[in-house]
Simulated scan of single mutants.
Amino acid sequence: MEDLYRFPNIINTLQVTGCHFGLKPPGWHYPRHHHHLFELLYCVEGEVAHEMNRDAMTMQAGDWLLIKSGVRHQSSNTAKSDYGFFNVHFDLDDPEIRSLLSATPYQLIRHKEAERSKLRYYVSELEEVMQRNRTKQPEAEATAALSSPLRFEDKLLLQSYTLLIIHDVLQLVREHKHGSIRGQAIAAEKEKDPSLFTADIAHMIEEKLSLGLCEEATVAGVAKEMNLSRSQCSKLFSKVYGLSPRQYVSQQKLKLAKELLVTTHLPMTDIAEKLGFHSASHFSRQFRRWTGQSPSEFKPRHHSTN
């Protein structure tokens, strides 16, 4: 019987930290800071003033803000009412998604745009998951109660709804990008747009790194091949993809390692060789550094049936 539909293998890692709901009084202020992960912020009620790098903006109820990793920002509740919010810090090891997330330092999605998605529904479902996990403890212990371990099923729900939120935000960002693409194309024709040049170079670097993934392609080697210095190569790549070329290679190797461990019966020596490691023990040590598990612990156990 022929397969009607076949989905690609998907072995990507989602990292979620600092996922919470909060309520801040008038006069509240959070000083200038930055994160190593992407941040999504949703204004549930009230309003909040942000300074992103040196740009000032105000979020109102229903607005969303996507902040690229490394962007310095500060927040203040300058209104006369409480500011309620949902916020999550996350990272994904998919290069195409990271490229879109890193396209601009920040992206503000107004309430009217967000209402065309299911974002509000996903947030309400997440809130329900978190409410279920609140333990009945005294008010003084409320903060500790919120950070108590989640049930396994609720961890899956947390990841699922976070991914759905990221999906809808990216869809809105992509639509906004396509909506202004004609104007960008015209501007690029009139005057060579340096951002387009940067993107083209970064994509070429990414392609060369991907093709040489199993042959230990070095950043220095790719830079030399493209007549760039190593620092230029890293700076251009990081600007577009939001991570260094070395981090990208590590993430891609981890992704391929997981796929080979899950979908094949290859011995560790063959997997190590395919990924450009000198030995199975070298691969095993690096895999444990990446995941906290050995390859044999990560590999699913296959049970034979009679």
Rank of each mutant, 00 (worst) to 15 (best):
L256K: 13
I271A: 07
R288I: 03
L254T: 05
K255D: 03
P245W: 10
F287K: 00
E273G: 11
S279C: 07
P245Q: 12
V240W: 03
V240C: 06
H265M: 12
F283Y: 03
R246A: 07
T269I: 12
F283L: 01
L261T: 08
A280W: 00
R246S: 10
L256M: 11
G242S: 10
F277S: 02
P245E: 08
S244H: 08
L243M: 15
L256A: 10
E259V: 09
L261G: 06
E273C: 11
H278C: 12
R285T: 07
L261D: 02
Y241A: 08
Q252W: 06
K274I: 12
K258I: 06
T269P: 04
L256T: 10
L261F: 05
F287E: 01
M268G: 06
K258C: 12
F277M: 02
K274W: 08
I271R: 04
V240H: 05
Q252E: 11
S279F: 05
H278A: 13
K258W: 04
H265A: 14
Y241D: 04
V240G: 02
V249Y: 04
T264Y: 06
L260C: 03
S244W: 08
L260T: 02
P245A: 11
K239G: 10
K239H: 13
H265P: 00
A272T: 04
L254H: 04
L260Y: 04
V249G: 01
Q251L: 13
E259P: 00
S244K: 13
L243C: 14
D270G: 00
S244I: 09
L266S: 11
L260H: 00
Y248H: 15
T269C: 09
H282A: 15
A257N: 03
Q251R: 13
A272Q: 00
L256D: 01
A272W: 01
A280E: 06
L256I: 08
Q247F: 04
G242L: 09
M268H: 05
F277G: 02
F283Q: 00
F277D: 00
Q247E: 15
E273F: 11
S284H: 02
G276C: 09
H282C: 07
P267Y: 06
S250V: 09
K274G: 05
E273K: 15
R246L: 08
Y241T: 09
S284C: 07
P267W: 04
F283I: 00
Q252C: 09
H282L: 03
Y248M: 10
K258N: 11
M268P: 02
S250F: 05
S279M: 06
K253Q: 10
E273A: 15
K253Y: 02
T269N: 14
E259I: 12
K239L: 11
H265Y: 11
V262A: 13
Q252V: 06
H278K: 15
H278I: 10
K258A: 10
L254E: 04
E259H: 09
H282Q: 13
E273D: 14
L256Y: 05
K253W: 00
L275H: 04
Y241G: 05
L266Y: 14
S250A: 13
K239M: 10
Q251E: 12
Q252M: 14
P245M: 12
T263M: 15
D270S: 12
